[in-house]
Design a protein around this nucleic acid. Structure first.
Length: 560
RNA sequence: GGCCCCGUCGUCUAGCGGUCUAGGACACUGGCCUUUCACGCCGGUAACACGGGUUCGAGUCCCGUCGGGGUCACCA
């Protein structure tokens, strides 16, 4: 078995000495030149937010070191259509700008990058492991193996497999096969000593070999299992840093065993805590959305998303439309830098105050040593805060670009000529910070439709127009005024209204709320004069007429 | 249950023995601004899981307890 040679210098990290001086990077002689990291998704059909974080950290590490980030597809156990199930994952990464140097779609020197197509490598590795005595053919049935384990558990003994059905020679194997048995290949794990390695986020790790079972690495049908395939690929691809979720921590000793038995360098490991549910320490799961929806913050984000996709006539099944998945954010109109920045800070921080990172700053500042060890729970509300920040940073033309597809899909805009862009731009400017996600533009749909198709808030109409005795009179007087307005700019309109208020000796509140409801159908919206300017004189007059008519109807109805 | 990991405001976190009567951010909340809403500005509530050590001194080191989580597959 080859001695573990600690390779590579991990990115310099000031906090690293917390693990003891002997693990300081300076003490590790690096003879690999670059950093190679990987993310290995299973083609599940969706991209989980926790997976993105893991991928992001891997990507960051590679980019920082000028190394490579590799996407490998763990589809050894896949029944469904792989390419179909992979698409959302690749799309998600592309959307977020997490690009890979090798993998699906881009190829690379170690192709193929699908485990289902790498069986030859795994079989060769199994051969090698068998030859050097690190693995053996086990002819026990699954039941026989389980029975031994359970009896050990019952007696509260450490389970030490008897290896009774181990075939050490071909003739033994033939004999077992004659009995109708078939073999799996198991790791012949050491039974004394410890497996020690340094976890780049957790520090020195030590596991007693005796607690490790003889894991199966190859099924009876000859196909390989995860632990083997993963290690073989990491060796083949020259992976230097294995950064993955903590559920793999317990797999690490057996993988270290395989690395060593294969005579390969053991990569650096870094185990990230999982992303937890909002307000809990449980692992975030896409299936538990119904439960998360009881959380008001989560629900708010979700409901807003639903409203947007319904307006654009898109489907929103829980399979893809779920705030646990990145597809959700893409559909609703979040910005990739917001997602990346939020995820960066979920389990990592630079210091006590830096919150916002450009792509370059992220790459420059990231370090495994500052990754937090405890689970971090996902807070959609905080993600929204980052989104609001990045949306606000966007130049108006970029916002228009972001918003236009929503207007088109909702059928509010049919062509994107210059005039349309100009009009949308005015709304975007007026909406200002009310536009948090691109899909929010649909809240202002009434600027795009005829009077008859406005969505009206009836209670606002009642409160602001029907109830106040003077509202109707004031509105019709104001209407007369704007018919003759010299121009229809916000500034002129504001001046007109102020004159109007002075002339009738009223407070501005007495007219402006009624005016807003009359013109927009709603009690809330952006600046009144900007609203009027955008609507233009004709539409304002038309909507005022229609409001007055509706008032008349309401009055006669109550009079009866 | 065995083995392993984790435990600072509701949440994300700073903290590496004195600078911590614990700092920042999100959320919540009081006020200001204001034609509504949003933004913005000023302020507030709110945390070292518990118990023992070590030390002149512990959020920080050690031990234990409790709590949370992972893993013990011919899944990944």
């Amino acid at each position: 078995m080859c001695r573990q040679r600690l390779a590579v210098c991990p990115p310099l990290d000031v906090r690293f000495p917390r693990f003891g001086v002997s693990f300081h990077p300076q003490h590790q002689i690096g003879f690999r030149m670059s950093v190679r990291t990987r993310f290995a998704p299973s083609p599940t059909g969706y991209l989980h937010i926790g997976g993105v974080r893991t991928a992001l950290f891997n990507w960051l590490l590679a980019r920082q070191a000028g190394g490579q980030f590799i996407l490998r597809i763990d589809d050894t156990d896949q029944q469904r259509n792989v390419s179909e199930a992979l698409q959302p994952i690749l799309d998600g990464f592309r959307w977020l700008g997490i690009d890979w140097d090798e993998g699906p779609g881009v190829g690379g020197p170690h192709a193929p990058y699908f485990q289902s197509q790498r069986d030859g490598y795994y079989r060769a590795a199994v051969r090698k492991l068998l030859d050097c005595g690190a693995a053996y053919r086990d002819y026990a049935t699954s039941e026989e193996f389980q029975a031994e384990r359970q009896s050990a558990e019952k007696d509260k003994r450490i389970f030490e497999y008897s290896r009774r059905w181990m075939a050490e020679t071909d003739s033994q194997a033939a004999e077992y096969e004659g009995q109708g048995r078939s073999a799996v290949v198991r790791l012949k794990m050491p039974r004394e000593g410890k497996c020690e390695f340094v976890d780049l986020v957790r520090g020195p790790m030590s596991f007693e070999w005796i607690n490790e079972a003889d894991h199966v690495i190859q099924r009876a049908d000859g196909t390989s299992l995860y632990n083997l395939a993963s290690v073989v690929d990491d060796v083949e691809f020259g992976i230097t840093h294995v950064v993955r979720s903590i559920e793999h921590l317990a797999n690490t000793p057996r993988q270290v065993f395989i690395f060593r038995a294969l005579g390969a360098d053991v990569p650096h490991f870094a185990h990230l805590s999982y992303v937890a549910e909002p307000g809990s320490q449980n692992k975030l799961s896409k299936r538990k959305i119904a439960q998360y929806l009881k959380n008001p913050d989560f629900k708010r984000v979700y409901d807003e998303g639903v409203e947007i996709v319904e307006r654009i006539g898109a489907t929103h099944s829980a399979d893809s439309f779920n705030p646990v998945l990145v597809e959700f954010y893409e559909q609703v109109g979040y910005l990739p830098p917001a997602i990346n920045n939020y995820l960066l800070l979920l389990g990592w921080s630079l210091d006590d105050k830096t919150e916002f990172f450009t792509r370059e700053e992220m790459i420059r500042s990231f370090s495994l040593g500052r990754v937090i060890k405890s689970p971090a729970s996902f807070d959609p509300q905080k993600l929204v805060a980052f989104q609001a920040h990045y949306m606000n940073q966007l130049e108006v033309p970029a916002k228009v670009d972001a918003v236009l597809p929503y207007l088109e899909k909702a059928g509010l805009v049919s062509q994107t000529d210059e005039a349309t862009r100009k009009f949308v731009e005015r709304i975007v400017r007026a909406a200002d910070q009310r536009l948090v996600v691109a899909g929010n533009i649909l809240q202002f749909r009434d600027f795009f439709v005829d009077d008859g198709r406005i969505e009206r808030d009836e209670s606002a109409f009642d409160k602001r127009i029907v109830q106040p005795a003077e509202a109707g009179h004031l509105l019709s007087e104001f209407k007369k005024l704007i018919v003759g307005a010299p121009d229809f700019s916000a500034a002129t309109l504001e001046q007109l209204l102020h004159e109007f208020v002075a002339r009738f000796q009223i407070k501005i509140n007495q007219i402006i709320h009624a005016l807003r409801v009359a013109l927009t159908g709603k009690a809330v919206g952006f600046g009144m004069f900007e609203t009027m300017e955008i609507l233009g004189r004709d539409r304002c007059l038309q909507r005022l007429d229609s409001a007055l008519e509706r008032l008349e109807t309401a009055r006669t109805r109550t009079a009866r």
